[in-house]
Each structure stands twice: as structure tokens, then as C-alpha cells.
Design a protein around this nucleic acid. Sequence first.
DNA 1: AGAGAATACCTATGGAGATAGTTATTTTCG
DNA 2: CGAAAATAACTATCTCCATAGGTATTCTCT
Lengths: 193, 193
Amino acid sequence: MSLRYALIALLTGRPMTGYEVSKRFGASVGHVWHAPDSQIYPELRRLESEGLLTGEDVPWGTKARTKTRYAVTAAGEAAFREWMNSPASPHHSRDPAYLRAAYLDWADPMKARQYLLSQKQFHTERLVVLEATRAMLADRTHPVLAARLESIDEAEHERIIAFRTYAYDGMIARERADLKWVEDGLRLLAAND
Amino acid sequence: MSLRYALIALLTGRPMTGYEVSKRFGASVGHVWHAPDSQIYPELRRLESEGLLTGEDVPWGTKARTKTRYAVTAAGEAAFREWMNSPASPHHSRDPAYLRAAYLDWADPMKARQYLLSQKQFHTERLVVLEATRAMLADRTHPVLAARLESIDEAEHERIIAFRTYAYDGMIARERADLKWVEDGLRLLAAND
DNA sequence: AGAGAATACCTATGGAGATAGTTATTTTCG
DNA sequence: CGAAAATAACTATCTCCATAGGTATTCTCT
């Protein structure tokens, strides 16, 4: 249910084709809400059919092929704003890492160690990406943000950047907490075996 | 894909009926991997048909009604152990909270504040539950854990408890990080409006 | 004893999400 | 200049998950 709002949010920056959306997505809202393109293309169509986006056919290649360029409609913006104003509902976390951690006694100690080492690797890599993106937001070099700011009054810029970076601060803090937890896990394993 | 292993993990403690599973689930593995009973019952059946669980029909009530008591088979334990030994794959976080946070400039400031206040409430409540459960694991009063320990050599107990509490430590640390983040959000809102 | 509440057990359905493709066009480089 | 690689644009399918039910049995209270 959130994917559609992630897509609208992305497209408020500027109109994009499906492919552009699916690429940009990975480097911006995608950090916040992951989705593969097999989900993105159909959802874009659905949003168009519901009138939240317009889809303009743009010629592509030689034959009568076209690609679709999507833009947010007034109805789309309204729906997004409405979602942003809706009350919070509790969120069920569902992270296999905790499940595996709880039952690490079932695993082969070597495999458990390998597992934690790759977890550590994943978290470290993600931290790098998140911090780099956060920096690009803060100095306004992030392309999606830059496009968005262009259509907006200068006085608002600070406020918008503050919220965008705030979201990344949360993800970074979580990532750091997870990383520390994984390191504790490695120590725990070492102490036990 | 993790639900089945959460169910097997729960049932290694002792055999349970579907209803017992769905109740105990919420108070143990369910913290780690949430699932509604509409998912639990069919998955139990599937696991039975795959031979990872046995389902014994137990009479219930007057007429020829029965309920099913499930127990883990050797194949089930093997499958669980195999899963525990499989390599890690990166996990895509998908938390609507970050999406909303990033675009808080679209929300009505009052609504945004209300939203963050309920988020704070959710995190606080969950923290209480997690810490209480962690304590029950540490002092061995947690019923699912206690049942599991009974069938296991005393020398292993410490190690098992260490991993179970370790998982909760991770969830608690994440919850604390999130809570702090929400509080930062409230301050950010207050500063901006 | 009978009504209502709580417990026990389970199903139907639709949408969200993961995995794994396909086809066409443009760029690169030996 | 032709083959291989990269880019662009999508689709099909199957499983997972959420929402929202349903019915039978036992407990509780007046």
C-alpha cells in the first residue's frame, strides 16, 4: 500500500518514464521502501488508471514503439497528502535476522560465524550508501531532490531538506544499531565456542 | 519463507494444537516474525503435508469434531537446521515510517505531530513487551523456552538462553534507536512550525 | 437454567511482493 | 563494421501476507 505513495513522491520531483522511475527509485525512495521493477511498472499503470498519474506516450526507437512518461496529477498530490495526514498504524517488523539469531544454537558454529560476517558486510555497505545519500541531500546535489526544489519557493527549501535528511538519519541510526548488534553476536559466538 | 521456520522453532519446544501455536506464537517467535493465524493454520497443514510436522487428530467437543496436534519430525528438525546453516541474503527493509518521515513537509503540522506521538507510543509499548520477554528468557520463566529446555541437556542451557536473549537485545536496541529517532522528529517539527 | 462472553479452531479472498524471464534499441570496442 | 555489452521497457507467475470473516464449544454470571 505504501509503494504507490513512494512512486508519487518520486514523481513529484519531475515527470519520468517507467524505466527512469525504476532506476531513480533504487537510489532515492528505494532506500526507504524497496521494490523491484516488476512491481513498479504495473503500479504505475494502476495509478494512471485511477487518475493519480497521467501517462503520456513518447515515441521510442524506430517502429511505432512508445514508452510512457508519467506525471503526478492534482488528484495524485491530494491522495499523497491525504495519506501523509492519515493516522499511524502499528508496524509489524519481520526481519529474518532476529529469527536466526534467536536459534543460533541450532546452527553449525562455523556457519553461524560466516552468517554473521556477511550480515556485518551488508550493514556496512548499506551504511556507506545511506551516508553518501544523506550527504547529497544535505548539500542539495541529490538529483531527485534538486529537481523537486526547483519547482518550490526558496523559503521552503531548508524545511524540506531537514525532513529528507531526518529520514536518512533514522535509517542510519538503525543500521548502526544493527551493526553493533551483529558485532556483539560475533563476540558471543567466540565466547561460546 | 521464514514463517515455516518460526513455526518449527516454536514446536521444537513441545507439540501444540493449531490454536495453541497461534496463541503462543504472538508471545514468543511472533515478536521476531509476526504472522496472523490465517497464515499459521494453512502453513501448519502445508508443513504436515511435506512431512516436516506430524498432525495427530485429537477429539474435541461432543460430535466427531477434532483438532490437530502438531509435532516436529526428524525431517522438520533437519530442514530447520539446514535453513539455519544457509548463507545470508541481504534483507530489504520496508518500513513506511521512513517514507512518511522523508515527506513530512507534505503533511499538516498538527497531523504530523499526532502521527509522531502515536509512533512514540507504539515504540514505547513494544519496548515494554520486549524487555519483559527478555527478562522471562533470562530467568527461564518463559513457558516456551522452559518446555524446550526440559528436553535438553543441562550443559547446553546457558548457551541457548544466551542466543535467545541476544535476539531480544537486538530488537530492543533497534526499538530504542527508533524511539530516539521519533523524539528527534518531534523536536524537528517543533523547531520548524 | 439460559443468555452472553470468552475460548478454540479454522476458511475465503484479494492484493502485495519475489523470482525469473522477454524483446527491442543504442553504445562500445576490437 | 559487426559482435558483444549495456540500456530501455516490460510481462508472467507463484507465493506470501492482510483483512475479514465463519462456526463450534466452554465458561460465567444472574
